[in-house]
Computed example of a mutant assay.
Amino acid sequence: MNPLNHVAIIMDGNGRWGLKYKSSRNEGHKAGLNTVEKIIKESIKQKINFLTLYAFSTENWNRPKKEIDYLFNLLEYFLSQKIDDLHKKDIKLNIIGIKNFSKKLNKLLNFSEQKTSKNTTLQINLALNYGSKFEILDSVKKMKRNNDKINEKNLSKYLQTKNIPDPEILIRTGNTKRLSNFLLWQLAYSEIFFEKKLWPDFNEKDYIRIIKKFKKIKRNFGNI
């Protein structure tokens, strides 16, 4: 049985779900939050220590401004309503990406991180304004600036995921088979599961099925 410590998820398909069922991409993003809460709850049940969620990429700024504004308003609402509950459940919130948002959202993100900083049951890494290519280039620049030897260990030291183990599993919903500039360095040996379901339709049974399948996989890491 393979140990499972860290699950990363590309939550794809919210907009398509919204258009299909509610004639609104924004309604899909709203519905996706329900799935987030279900997966957080199941992650705790499964005793997973790290859950990384791809919420907003550096490329997502190319979306219509109205949709971007709605996404950030939804995030503000979620954090303001749920951060106390997350804290009570001993969940730590950690942001990876560049906090280049409104003063109000930046303040709320910083507050949420500080409030939950000592929690240990589950760490949620929320990838916001995150791009893996930028992260890797930035890490190389920091190595050079500090005159560090360029090697894997030092590069990892300057990543935004430093002190976080690499994911054993990557799940991408939405029937799309690509990584979309997400954790390119960290996913080198992750087991990847592409799901046809759109994110709002993804549920605990789907999650448990993937976990069970992962635990039976023979992981060689280059060996036979």
Rank of each mutant, 00 (worst) to 15 (best):
D148I: 00
S112Y: 04
F50E: 06
L79N: 07
I48H: 06
D206I: 02
K92M: 05
T176C: 10
S132K: 01
G32Q: 07
R25P: 10
K47H: 13
R145P: 02
K196V: 03
Y207H: 03
V7L: 14
I192Y: 05
D138L: 00
I91G: 11
Q160L: 11
Q114V: 02
I68V: 14
I83E: 14
I169M: 08
S132H: 08
L128E: 15
D90Q: 09
T35Q: 10
E195H: 08
Y189I: 06
K30C: 00
M1P: 08
K133T: 14
I9V: 14
Q81I: 05
R178T: 12
R219S: 03
T121K: 14
K216I: 07
N62S: 14
K144T: 15
I169W: 10
E191H: 04
A31C: 07
F78K: 08
I39C: 06
N14A: 03
K38T: 15
K213R: 12
N62M: 04
Q186G: 00
K99V: 01
N26S: 12
Q186W: 03
K118C: 11
G97N: 12
Q81F: 09
I48E: 13
L159T: 13
G131P: 09
K45Q: 13
I136L: 13
K218C: 00
L183H: 08
L159K: 07
W17S: 07
E42Q: 15
K196L: 09
L128C: 01
G28Q: 11
F50Q: 07
F182G: 04
T161E: 12
L79C: 08
